[in-house]
Every structure is written in structure tokens, then in C-alpha cells.
């Protein structure tokens, strides 16, 4: 029987080459992949002009399954690889998918500097609070007191807030969604792809196998319910009294700043000007 295309999503998958995926059942990364495809499909971006770059980790396996120009790089380094591509091909839509460990621990330096440059790259940061591929070790976003295989007595490491970090470092579009609120998340990703400048969308995702199991949330559905109960829309969050905020996090759009110059624009403007000056000087 011939496999019929039943969803627009299928057009974006290397469906005959690389499936099934490496992801465990119940993993949230697939939903995020779906949300990214939806956003690209709705924006009618040509597949040939998309470069999807990743580092190392569960979420970083995504490019292998998608029918774009794909690059699966080294741990934490996706952003500088993507920077090289974007500088040479500013016309291409460069997307980076990264996990919490990849983007915020080993890739932390590249993360803040990509934000600072405001280069037109969309970073989709899939945060599942854990190192999944290596077997469940603490990450820079693992909540205090929760358990991991390298925090058998509870985690004492304070965590990063990727939204605050990106905002402070100079990103110009910053948003957070969850896998539970996946329709909203897809819209946020869509907006980030439309944004000219560095954008970061953090997606709170679930790892039932290595995070949930150790923290009384064995079922993926329990983790999705946790996202539902703890992700508070930004407007409601602003009205929420401090004592009710504990343990919860705001979701939605935090920053959409179009006033700052985009990096490749600045570079090619400068390059054009000095070439014109040089040409005039010769006359």
C-alpha cells in the first residue's frame, strides 16, 4: 500500500529515511517539532531556504528528521555554526533547536553573544529540566530540590531563567510556551520566525522517563497537567500576587522589540558603504 500524505506536516519530514525517531514514548520534543513545522507551513517558507541547526542532546536530533538544510553539530555550539551560515546567507531562514543543557550550560557563552549581536536567528529552546540523552543528570534549569541521577539527595543548584537571560543579553524577541499550551507555542514560534533579529522561544517540555519518573510524575499526562497548572499566561501573571507565584512560571510573549538593528543588516550596510567609498575614492 502506498503511503498517502495525510497531513501537511508529512511534507516536511524525511519520512522514508529516518523514522522512527530516537525519542522515548511520552517525550515532548515531537510536539515541539510539530509546532515548528506548523509555523513554517503557515508562513509558507520555502523548505530550500530553511537551515535547521542543532547541537547535541535529545532535542538536537530533530534536524535529522526534517526535510530542510540540516546541520547537527557539536554540543552547545549550534549558535556559532548557525551564525556562520546566516552571515554568508542572510536571505536564509536560520533556526536553531537546542535543549536546556545544550543552550544554557555548555552553550551559555554562545547563547548570550548571539542575543547581544541580535543576529536574525530563531532559537527554539526545548527545556525539559534534565539531560535526557546522557541518562538524567541535572541541568542548569533543573528546579531546586528536585531529583536527578546526579542529584540523588535533591538538587541544590539554582537554575537559570532563559527568558530573563535572553532579555538581559539583548535578544529582541523573547517568549515562553509549554507543550500543554502547544497551539499558543506554535503561534509564538511563528512570531519568532517572522521577527527580524535574535529570537528565543523557550518551550517547557516533558521528559517522563528521566525527569518525571524521579519526581513523582511518571506519566507524560501528569507532566502535561503540571505544565497546565504551573504555566500562567503573562497577563494573569502580572496580576498574580507574589505569594501565589511560587513554583509557577509565566508563559506568553515577553519582548518584541523591532527598534534595534539586526546584525547581518548592519554588517552588509557597512560593507556596502565602505565599498562605495572605495569606488568613489578611486575616481
Amino acid at each position: 500500500m502506498k503511503l498517502e500524505t495525510i497531513s501537511p506536516v508529512h511534507d516536511y519530514l524525511r519520512i522514508h529515511k529516518k523514522f522512527p525517531t530516537v525519542w522515548c514514548s511520552g517525550c515532548g520534543i515531537g510536539s515541539v517539532m510539530h509546532a515548528i513545522i506548523r509555523a513554517i507551513h503557515e508562513l509558507e517558507i520555502n523548505k530550500n531556504s530553511v537551515a535547521l541547526v542543532s547541537g547535541i542532546g535529545c532535542s538536537s536530533r530533530m534536524p535529522i528528521y526534517l526535510d530542510f538544510n540540516t546541520l547537527h553539530t557539536t554540543h552547545g555550539r549550534a549558535l556559532p555554526f548557525a551564525t556562520g551560515i546566516k552571515m554568508v546567507r542572510p536571505d536564509m531562514k536560520v533556526i536553531v533547536v537546542s535543549g536546556d543543557g545544550d543552550a544554557l550550560a555548555i552553550g551559555g557563552n554562545h547563547f548570550i553573544h548571539a542575543c547581544r549581536r541580535n543576529i536574525d536567528i530563531s532559537l527554539i529552546l526545548i527545556n525539559n529540566y534534565i539531560y535526557g540523552m546522557t541518562g538524567g543528570q541535572v541541568s542548569p534549569t533543573t528546579p531546586l530540590e528536585s531529583y536527578a541521577h546526579t542529584a540523588p539527595y535533591g538538587n541544590i543548584d539554582p537554575s537559570f531563567d532563559a527568558v530573563k537571560l535572553a532579555t538581559a543579553a539583548g535578544a529582541t524577541y523573547v517568549a515562553r510556551g509549554t507543550n500543554y499550551h502547544i497551539v499558543q507555542t506554535s503561534k509564538l514560534i511563528k512570531k519568532s520566525l517572522e521577527h527580524k533579529g535574535f529570537s528565543m522561544v523557550e518551550v517547557i517540555s516533558q521528559c517522563p522517563v528521566l525527569y518525571g519518573r524521579l519526581n513523582n510524575m511518571k506519566l507524560p499526562t501528569t507532566m502535561l497537567e503540571w505544565q497546565r497548572d504551573h504555566g500562567v499566561n503573562i497577563k494573569a501573571w502580572d496580576k498574580l500576587p507574589e505569594e501565589k507565584r511560587a513554583g509557577k512560571f509565566p508563559i506568553g510573549e515577553f519582548l518584541d522589540d523591532t527598534s534595534r538593528p539586526e546584525y547581518t543588516d548592519s554588517y552588509y550596510k557597512m560593507s556596502k558603504e565602505v565599498r562605495e567609498e572605495a569606488a568613489n575614492g578611486e575616481e
Binding site: T73, R77, L79, P80, I85, K86, V88, H110, Y267
Partner: peptide
């Protein structure tokens, strides 16, 4: 294109990305 990166790790990454582009 000339770009100064944040470190040599990023420098090496960027020239690979640029070459692939």
C-alpha cells in the same frame, strides 16, 4: 564577511557554518 566571535570554539564553528553555506 569578517566576524569576531566570543571565543575560538565559536570561531571554528562559524567557519564550518560559513563553508557549508
Amino acid at each position: 564577511v569578517y566576524i569576531q566571535l566570543e571565543d575560538e570554539i565559536a570561531s571554528m564553528a562559524s567557519i564550518i557554518g560559513a563553508s557549508l553555506a
